[in-house]
Design a protein around this nucleic acid. Structure first.
Lengths: 175, 175
DNA sequence: GAATTTATGTCAGTATTATTGACATATTTC
DNA sequence: GAAATATGTCAATAATACTGACATAAATTC
């Protein structure tokens, strides 16, 4: 590095903005990657025993949390196509984890519910993930969970945030 | 609810533990799902323009952040098999985003580096993700980022945590 | 009441990313 | 020289996603 070229150095600093700040953001990005990897790893192992995958987990989870959900609702939450959902949902219904009922109001719609079996599996999967959250909370202190909650919410796409918060705040019907 | 059956109520409470606590953990689980969905959504759109997928992103990212990484290192970080990595890495090398060099110490090993082109794409992808983190930080306050960092680290599998923190704390070589 | 729209279901073809198992090659270590 | 190690490769398979096309039933609109 040429010591007598201060202009060049200024350019470098301008490009990297505040280095500490940038480094902190980078760390958050990578820690989120690792945290999520382990967060989904727990349920993955249990799901294997049932011949299910992550896609089954997500469907079962949101149906358990939002009984009476329609197909269209579910597709919006999961952001997948009906063609992707179909085989997964069919399998969950076929194996008796989810129950589909035509709507009484609009009979074209299907309202989805978990069976006792589905409720039980959804609970087991959920408890693996809340356990991880509980451990992190106990390590970082109860206030940290509130901050983490706020921070995660702020990461959600603004246009989706209200909807996501509404779902997350759903009365817990799993117990 | 029968007001004169305190015993029953106690049983319910025992099963659900502290309801507020449980509800808070459930919310964290769901918010993490939505946050991560959007977190990976940004880069996905950019990657499409290059004919790359998420797998390419992860490889490019960790090579950019840890120049000289060996294949074995990379497999450990990503927790995938070499057969899964192979086509992705070959494509990144073939298109000139990553450079592979035999180790001078152990010539069986391959040391991976990003090219200028690879560095540039890695930067662009990273900035999409740090931007989201920056937005969340500005919404929740600078202290929140530190708490979020601690909380995410606590979510990582204890046996992996030291390694993950080491990687996340790597000097930023992207700029 | 006929025409259109909507909610769902289904088929076919394809892509990405992952797996296991088997085997090849080069290099290092014992 | 034999064994272990790091990487590369082939084949078969699976899970999860996509687009496009089309079918059906029910609701809505004209």
């Amino acid at each position: 590095m040429d010591m007598d070229e201060p202009a060049k150095q200024r350019v470098v600093l301008a490009h990297s903005e505040s280095t500490d700040e940038a480094q902190s953001l980078l760390e958050l990005v990578e820690l989120l990657f690792f945290a999520y990897r382990d967060f989904v790893g727990d349920p993955d192992r249990l799901l294997e025993d049932f011949g299910f995958g992550r896609a089954h987990h997500r469907v079962l989870h949101f149906v358990a949390r939002n009984p009476g959900l329609t197909i269209a609702n579910l597709l919006t939450i999961l952001k997948i196509t009906k063609q992707s959902l179909n085989p997964v949902l069919k399998e969950l219904i076929g194996k008796g984890y989810i129950i589909s009922r035509p709507g009484s109001d609009d009979r074209r719609q299907r309202h989805l519910f978990v069976s006792e079996r589905g409720k039980s599996l959804a609970q087991d999967l959920m408890s693996l993930q809340t356990r991880r959250m509980a451990r992190a909370t106990s390590e970082c202190g109860p206030e940290s969970a509130m901050v983490a909650r706020q921070f995660l919410a702020a990461m959600i796409e603004p246009s989706e945030r209200a909807e996501a918060l509404k779902i997350a705040a759903a009365q817990d019907r799993l117990r």
